[in-house]
Amino acid sequence: CHSECLGNCSQPDDPTKCVACRNFYLDGRCVETCPPPYYHFQDWRCVNFSFCQDLHHKCKNSRRQGCHQYVIHNNKCIPECPSGYTMNSSNLLCTPCLGPCPKVCHLLEGEKTIDSVTSAQELRGCTVINGSLIINIRGGNNLAAELEANLGLIEEISGYLKIRRSYALVSLSFFRKLRLIRGETLEIGNYSFYALDNQNLRQLWDWSKHNLTITQGKLFFHYNPKLCLSEIHKMEEVSGTKGRQERNDIALKTNGDQASCENELLKFSYIRTSFDKILLRWEPYWPPDFRDLLGFMLFYKEAPYQNVTEFDGQDACGSNSWTVVDIDPPLRSNDPKSQNHPGWLMRGLKPWTQYAIFVKTLVTFSDERRTYGAKSDIIYVQTDATNPSVPLDPISVSNSSSQIILKWKPPSDPNGNITHYLVFWERQAEDSELFELDYCLKGLKLPSRTWSPPFESEDSQKHNQSEYEDSAGECCSCPKTDSQILKELEESSFRKTFEDYLHNVVFVPRKT
């Protein structure tokens, strides 16, 4: 048989008469490798580009789960590009990614509803959504962080984005990388972005840091009482949809009607710091009717980097990364020049730590249904340095008659930039024990000054392991946590139920 035959053949030295091919099969003959313009397919066939392209389009058009959109890589027609490569849609070739590779997620039936953290986790790592997304989240724990972890990498949506009755959302900033909504599939009414009845939605994105392009379709905003109209108009300008909307697409009466839409800028007039305090004062603000001013709200939190936005980490279910302080308005003076500047002394802060701070007014709604208010920009203030805590785990070892090696770990709280350490030492008198000992005694162990690591005695271990207080009263049991108490109650309830079950099964009433 021919060298490319495997198993047997019907005619000697003829690659077209093989029972099976050793390498690849091409047009009725066995070959060692697939010549151009053919590609290896499933490690035994040679196919042309049209064959591989037909497989790709067949799966793409069917949208069946589990099928493969075949691509070409290293002269092979394979189910998908290997790690580190992405497909070129024009020629199906796998090309190296520039940075992290995109991950295209194809949605069944063309859309997916995100109504819980669990459903959001199914899209973790996706960068391109081939379909439409509907966000409908009523509640949950730590929602802002969970949504950002699972949806934060999405850069492109081919269909539309719909935010509907998501009472738990305060902001859409968890879509931190969303840059493009194509609108290839539109919501009824030709809408590519749809926001309806979101009672706590206050911000779409921080438009000073976020760009969003909507290729096709219109915007729809109705019944978002805490979303200011200025935020919607800003989205029109940034996304390129200005002029597409009709009169009733953006409701003037049901958007922002319960919001404090600040239209003035508060400026800080005085800032002073110490290692654990920050004193702030800002310019006074009074609405047209000074009785509408209820006070100020001061927001602050630790910020290692200057990239904080107002609604980071917030949701309507209680999660809030900001510390909020309510401040009463100052006494009002008739003389504008003698107006008191409101302020606040922030206490209990960490030394040498940068804080993000902003302040906003708290006002009631005027009778004319106009909203007044003022808010400052987010500023960054760093507390002063102070003395560091003591170095940890000092170790001293003498390696000769004239040297001592000293080692330690950095302090747990540096409280500033540590530039150097101060080492103090003092000579001590020799131990009298060394002169009084009889060095001729056998088995004498000389006193040693070398360091030995501390260890816990058996008594201390027994005390720590004991669940009861000892007789001397030195140790006591740790208080039980809520989960331990709940577990004990469940076990007790189970024992009672099981005992009742045994009584009912074992003891049967005697027939009379």
Rank of each mutant, 00 (worst) to 15 (best):
Q199L: 11
K162L: 15
L212W: 11
S230Q: 01
L362S: 02
N263C: 05
G140K: 13
T371H: 14
R281C: 11
N399S: 12
K267G: 07
G131N: 02
A120L: 09
I379V: 09
M235W: 08
L204C: 13
V324T: 03
L349W: 00
L151P: 00
I137T: 13
P329W: 13
L107R: 10
R164M: 06
N211R: 10
C105G: 01
I250D: 12
L331V: 11
R176I: 07
A303W: 03
S269P: 02
T323W: 15
R332N: 11
L229D: 12
R124H: 15
D115C: 04
H210V: 11
E187P: 02
D115K: 09
N130Y: 04
K177H: 14
V170L: 08
R165H: 04
A195K: 01
E246T: 08
G159C: 05
E231N: 03
S402R: 05
R165T: 06
L279E: 10
Y194P: 01
G318S: 13
N198I: 02
Q245W: 15
K409H: 03
F174I: 14
S132Q: 15
Q258L: 08
K177Y: 13
K234W: 07
D377T: 09
Q403Y: 14
T254R: 06
E122R: 15
N150S: 11
V324I: 12
W282Q: 00
I135C: 15
K267V: 13
I357A: 04
L280F: 14
L147R: 02
K234M: 00
L108R: 11
T241S: 08
R247G: 14
Q339F: 14
Q203H: 06
N263L: 08
L298T: 10
D206Y: 06
D328H: 10
E148S: 04
E262R: 10
P336T: 05
F175G: 01
G343M: 15
S274C: 12
D326K: 00
C228Q: 02
P284R: 15
L362A: 12
S400C: 05
V397Y: 14
G348W: 15
N320Y: 13
R370A: 12
L169S: 07
T185Q: 12
G125Q: 13
L204I: 13
S230K: 14
G313R: 08
K226E: 04
S398Q: 03
T371Q: 12
L169V: 07
Q339S: 06
I405W: 06
T213I: 09
R164L: 09
L219H: 03
N136H: 13
Y300E: 02
F365V: 08
N248F: 04
W352I: 02
L178S: 00
N399V: 13
F268N: 00
N334F: 07
I129L: 11
P284L: 07
L133V: 11
